[in-house]
């Protein structure tokens, strides 16, 4: 299996396709922040690129989430691949 890493990448993309099904409930920290009354202290970022994992300008939320996820998977894969190549050269 020479292209095993391609399979890994396909699995990651498959997970992104499932992301519209993710639970929308607050996560552990958000839950405690709401229960203990400090949730409103949270500030939004001063800028917005793909905030809330919704690709901007897309009306369909499921599609917007999937597109956001694909951008993220590509960005992380590219950045960590580049990082590891850098190390390989050094090693």
């Amino acid at each position: 299996m020479k292209r095993w890493w391609l399979i890994g990448l396909i699995i990651a993309i498959f997970l992104v396709m499932l992301s519209p099904l993710a639970s929308a409930s607050p996560d552990g920290l958000e839950r405690v922040a709401q229960n203990e009354g400090f949730a409103e202290l949270a500030e939004d970022a001063p800028f917005s690129v793909i905030a809330d994992y919704l690709f901007p300008g897309i009306d369909n939320p499921a599609l917007a989430t999937i597109l956001a996820g694909l951008v993220g998977v590509a960005a992380v894969f590219g950045a960590s691949y580049a990082l590891s190549l850098m190390f390989k050269k050094k090693a």
């Binding site: 890994g8 992104v16 099904l21 993710a22 996560d27 992380v76 894969f77 950045a79 960590s80 990082l83």
Partner: peptide
Amino acid sequence: MGVLGAFVFAGQMLN
């Protein structure tokens, strides 16, 4: 490293 990064990013979207 790239595959795991991508997998973990996608996994973190799946609450």
